[in-house]
Amino acid sequence: MTIASATDGGRLAGRTAVVTGAASGIGRAVAERFVREGASVVATDIDEAGLDRLVRQLPGAVSTVVGDVARDEDARRMVEAAVERHGRLDVLVANAGVIPLMEITEATAEDWDRVMAVDGRGMFLTCKYAIRAMTAQDRPGGSIVCLSSISGEAGQRGQAVYGPAKFVASGLTKHLAVEWADRGIRVNAVAPGTTATERVARLRDEPGGPEYLAAIERLHPMRRLGDPAEVAAAVLFLASDEASFVTGVVLPVDGGYLAQ
């Protein structure tokens, strides 16, 4: 484990955050932005090498936990690490997920179980342990931001496995927001459109990938893919005190996709 010192000031100064799936993509962008805003970040992922690269790159406070959010013990360790290392947990960003693209006739039961394990069960477990920590600390309360998707708000082709898991993310967000609002815990989500992560970039080298990307760009009214940093900015808003009266929201960051 490597730890660097936090920056002074910022919208998350003095806060501790756990970011799951932080080795790449949106999770990495969130970790980077949170550090610049003064947070102490516990970055988690199954990709140990990716986490090591993150630690070397970030100029602010970050420590790591290698684990699988779908495993109860690993999810608990991720949250406990924040409390043990920094004394409390203020923010959870439940971002970890897998993104298969397939129609239902191509998908197997194993495909379904794998996606639901990470994107569904993993989000459930990390939220569960985060809420336990947030309610047990000296100053109860906190903010949870779940990563949903436009696929968790509307139907799309080729998303028969991934999309339903993101409907879980949107639904869990709303139910937890109502359940824990009176105990000082806000629960929101962002619903990104197609975002230029490393996974999406690899589609350009896969059969049918370039055609898929060209088609999906046309479906976004802004006629481009999102940038992970743009999603991270929305996550920061929901995590910060600027959203102090916001809970139960699924915020699209989608270039107008869901407005159609």
Score class of each variant (00 low, 15 high):
Arg183Phe: 03
Ile144Met: 12
Gly209Lys: 02
Gln57Ala: 15
Leu251Cys: 06
Pro228Tyr: 03
Pro252His: 14
Ala154Leu: 04
Phe124Arg: 05
Asp119Arg: 08
Val65Lys: 05
Gln137Leu: 07
Ala169His: 03
Gly21Ser: 05
Val187Asn: 12
Pro192Ala: 08
Val98Asn: 00
Gln57Trp: 09
Ile26Lys: 04
Val161Gln: 07
Leu203Tyr: 12
Ile185Phe: 02
Thr197Tyr: 00
Arg186Gly: 12
Ser149Arg: 03
Gly152Gln: 11
Ala107Met: 09
Val178Cys: 12
Ser244Asp: 14
Ala154Arg: 15
Ala215Tyr: 10
Val235Gly: 02
Pro140Phe: 11
Tyr212Lys: 08
Arg202Ala: 12
Pro140Tyr: 10
Cys127Glu: 05
Val35Ala: 15
Thr197Asn: 03
Gly10Asp: 08
Glu103Val: 06
Pro207Leu: 08
Cys146Pro: 01
Phe34Tyr: 14
Ile150Tyr: 00
Gly27Met: 07
Leu101Arg: 14
Thr44Ile: 03
Ala31Leu: 11
Val231Asp: 00
Met102Phe: 03
Val250Asn: 12
Gly122Gln: 07
Val200Gln: 07
Val69Leu: 07
Ser149Glu: 01
Asp8Ser: 13
Ala232Asn: 04
Ala214Asp: 15
Ala82Pro: 06
Trp112Glu: 00
Arg36Thr: 13
Ala229Trp: 01
Val42Asp: 06
Leu101Met: 11
Ala215Gln: 14
Ala75Phe: 01
Val145Met: 04
Thr7Asp: 01
Pro228Cys: 06
Ser63Phe: 00
Gly248Trp: 10
Gly120Met: 10
Ala29Pro: 00
Ser244His: 13
Leu101Gly: 02
Asp119Ile: 05
Glu198Ile: 02
Ala117His: 07
Leu213Gly: 03
Gly14Asn: 11
Ala96Tyr: 11
Ala259Gly: 12
Arg186Tyr: 12
Ala177Leu: 07
Tyr162Ser: 08
Thr108Ile: 10
Val65Ile: 13
Gly27Glu: 10
Ala214Arg: 14
Glu106Cys: 00
Ser244Gly: 12
Thr135His: 03
Leu258Asn: 09
Glu84Pro: 01
Ala49Phe: 02
Ile144Val: 15
Ala136Thr: 06
Asp111Asn: 15
Val98Gly: 02
Ser24Thr: 14
Leu213Ser: 03
Ala22Ile: 06
Pro252Phe: 12
Asp74Cys: 11
Glu84Tyr: 00
Val118Met: 05
Ala130Arg: 02
Leu203Arg: 12
Gly142Ser: 07
Thr135Asp: 00
Gly208Pro: 06
Leu92Gly: 11
Val249Pro: 01
Gly60Ile: 10
Ala94Cys: 10
Val246Gly: 01
Glu73Gly: 13
Val18Pro: 02
His86Ser: 05
Arg121Asn: 06
Glu110Trp: 00
Gly67Thr: 03
Val18Asn: 04
Asp74Pro: 09
Arg224His: 09
Asp8Pro: 07
Trp112Met: 11
Arg33Ile: 04
Met116Phe: 15
Asp254His: 11
Ile99Gln: 09
Ala243Met: 12
Val42Gln: 03
His86Asp: 13
Glu179Val: 01
Pro228Leu: 07
Ala107Asp: 06
Thr173Ile: 10
Arg218Thr: 04
Thr16Gly: 10
Ala196Gln: 14
